[in-house]
């Protein structure tokens, strides 16, 4: 038996409209005037037929376009996720239910350059065992992201401001030349430091696993996901002899939101540095 699919009501509606146009075209008496009407009805019938078939995968988009014709289709106005009150998972609504997703950091710091062939083979086998660890779907990810230098860059910028202020003070107070030179030297040093920090992008590699579970209440979904994650922690810990940990709080965002994968201030400073270099 075919289960009721989400797209089926729209498909049935559109195929019905198509059939109605077809029947009207057939029922219309044939005369010189009505043949054009018949042709239009047949074309409409074919158009709705194609739309009906397309609704199999695109019901949301077609449904929205039929209700609100326009060039901008809004599938959802809701936030795609939110962090659970316990701050150890993210939540998403799926119909009446909730899906919680837990992230587990896998601290693997081994490098292939330090391994002999036997160790490398052993490591590959350990990775294979990890991938086949569980019956439930688990996502294993390796993420290369930009290191967040926002705070560091802000500190350097503050030092530049401080240094410039002291330089101006020294000049106003008609201090001796050596003091002015010292201030100028300090400012130049901090500016060079900002330049260097902005020019090079520092990348970090993180390995993590994520697993989801559904529940009719938020806490149900969270505790089910936590339970599954604990199984992964135990399994991965045994395979590699390491201690995977839960990722919590705002750290979760660095695996989901693009602006945390590439921190805004860090990348802006880098773009400015590139632009300055191009101008020069």
């Amino acid at each position: 038996m075919i289960a009721m699919d989400k797209s089926m009501p729209l498909f049935l509606g559109l195929i019905l409209v198509s059939a109605v146009f077809l029947v009207l075209a057939e029922a219309m008496p044939a005369s010189i005037v009505t043949v054009y009407g018949k042709l239009v009805l047949l074309i409409l019938s074919l158009g709705f037929d194609v739309l009906a078939f397309s609704s199999r995968h695109y019901s949301q988009i077609i449904g929205h376009m039929l209700k609100h014709p326009g060039k901008h289709v809004v599938l959802s106005k809701e936030e795609p996720y939110w962090i659970s009150p316990s701050a150890d998972s993210i939540l998403r609504r799926e119909g009446e239910d909730f899906i919680a997703t837990v992230y587990v950091r896998i601290p693997l710091y081994k490098s292939a350059t330090e391994m002999n062939p036997e160790e490398a083979l052993q490591f590959s086998k350990q990775v294979s065992s990890m991938v086949g660890l569980n019956r439930d779907p688990i996502r294993y990810s390796v993420q290369l992201s930009l290191m967040n230098k926002d705070t560091y860059l802000q500190q350097v910028r503050d030092m530049i401001n401080k240094s410039e202020a002291s330089e101006a003070q020294a000049m106003e107070a008609n201090s001796d030349q050596a003091a002015i030179e010292r201030s100028k030297g300090g400012t130049a040093m901090w500016k060079r430091m900002l330049d260097n920090a902005s020019k090079t992008q520092s990348l970090e590699l993180i390995t993590y696993a994520s697993i989801s579970a559904m529940g009719s209440k938020e806490f149900e979904a969270v505790s089910a996901a936590q339970q599954r994650a604990r199984e992964i922690i135990a399994g991965v810990g045994t395979i590699f002899g390491i201690s995977p940990t839960f990722i919590t709080g705002d750290q979760l965002k660095s695996f989901i939101d693009p602006e945390y994968v590439i921190p805004t201030a860090t990348v802006s400073e880098h773009m400015n540095a590139e632009m300055r270099e191009e101008v020069i």
Binding site: A112, G132, N134, P137, Y140, S141, Q143, L144, L205, V261
Partner: peptide
């Protein structure tokens, strides 16, 4: 490791597996 070292921009490599 050699492949990752040559990539100079952020990316994520995911495998979803189920027994």
């Amino acid at each position: 490791e050699r492949t990752v070292m040559n990539i100079k921009f952020p990316f994520k490599f995911h495998i979803i597996s189920a027994g």
